[in-house]
Design a protein around this nucleic acid. Structure first.
Lengths: 192, 192
DNA sequence: GTAATAATCAACAAAATGTTTATTATCATT
DNA sequence: AATGATAATAAACATTTTGTTGATTATTAC
């Protein structure tokens, strides 16, 4: 899958560039961030950026994908637990915990005015991991209704996560997951 | 509020620029669209663009705001009807109809990878117009739960609208609104 | 018909983009 | 420690985009 191990210099450079971008995104709109901004902040040559990324949107996407890959791994590690249970809580809890641990960068990405990509990818991740459970729980007749329901639920959850990331001090992962489960359970009654 | 009436030349220019942008957004990512692209497509001088907008993000925002202003007007015109009823259907139906009529541009804005602004603004609009009704229907105790619930619902609705805009042929406005109402009604039980 | 002003054209400086070449620094490996 | 591979640098470059300017033409409202 991935190259046995990247050269230490490459790891260092990519890390510095990503850190620099994350910093800058806290300071201004993504659209106003240039390659020069990033490399200056990272204290690297501008040309070095182009050795690893094509443009600012490319590095942003890589950051997003990394976060989502980590979340997917969390889920995969708990897949047995999830299948054993009939609740979505075991599936959602590790995600919530990971988001809690990486709240700063997640808040940054979810609020980022540059791209709906992250939200869309996140929604797809939730869909891919929850739709089976939901479908199993409610043997839905009308597939059209089911599709709308899943779109509603999956983006709705992101709405909650977004609100959650704004709470100070942050509501616990446990608490938010229980509430997500509640709201999913009740709203699914609309399918009957 | 607005200047009695804009010069006909200005109206024409703005319209051409907006049309050109809408066309281009169907063809490529917003981030790759330049001022030159827009003015060339509109067959106008590049300098003319800067007489009306500061940059590509500015004109995009203006288009978004116009759509949302129209939706808000639809709602305001039916405010009495909405207050009389205790359902959200009268509030949502004119919105759904307007979206249906302007499906192309709405699909463009809601899927636009350049900006989460539209979705955020749209969510706020739904919130502003529905939160009172929801709060009235369910006298919620825990305000924290209530906030999460509203974030869930308002973005969830947008998820459905997004899915709805992808249906071919498009599901009727009537149908989608009834389903939104259903799902809102049932999911609100999670607040009890 | 006239005064006001929008749009055009051409030119411009400044900034950002993306690429290239030669050079230096660091790496993994033995 | 020495070595071959390669990442990062520095400097330069053409190209594109950005905003702005001033003079001119065309259209508008009245």
């Amino acid at each position: 899958m991935e190259n046995i191990k990247e050269d230490r210099r490459i790891r260092r450079t990519k890390k510095l560039l990503k850190q620099a971008l994350a910093q800058l995104m806290d300071e201004k709109d993504f659209k106003d961030i240039t390659v020069k901004d990033i490399t200056e902040r990272a204290d690297l040559n501008r040309g070095t950026f182009y050795l690893h990324y094509t443009d600012t949107y490319d590095i942003l996407n890589k950051i997003e994908d990394e976060i989502l890959k980590n979340i997917q791994n969390m889920i995969d590690q708990n897949i047995e637990k999830t299948n054993a249970s009939d609740s979505v809580i075991p599936a959602l809890k590790p995600i919530a915990e990971y988001i809690m641990e990486n709240a700063d960068i997640c808040r940054c990405l979810i609020n980022n005015k540059a791209s709906v990509d992250f939200i869309e990818k996140f929604q797809n991740l939730i869909y891919d991991n929850c739709s089976d459970i939901i479908k199993r729980r409610h043997n839905v007749k009308d597939s059209k209704q089911n599709e709308f329901y899943l779109s509603f639920i999956t983006l709705g959850i992101i709405g909650m996560v977004k609100k959650w990331l704004e709470t100070r001090p942050m509501v616990s992962a446990e608490e938010i997951v229980v509430f997500v489960d509640q709201i999913m359970t009740y709203s699914s009654a609309a399918l009957k």
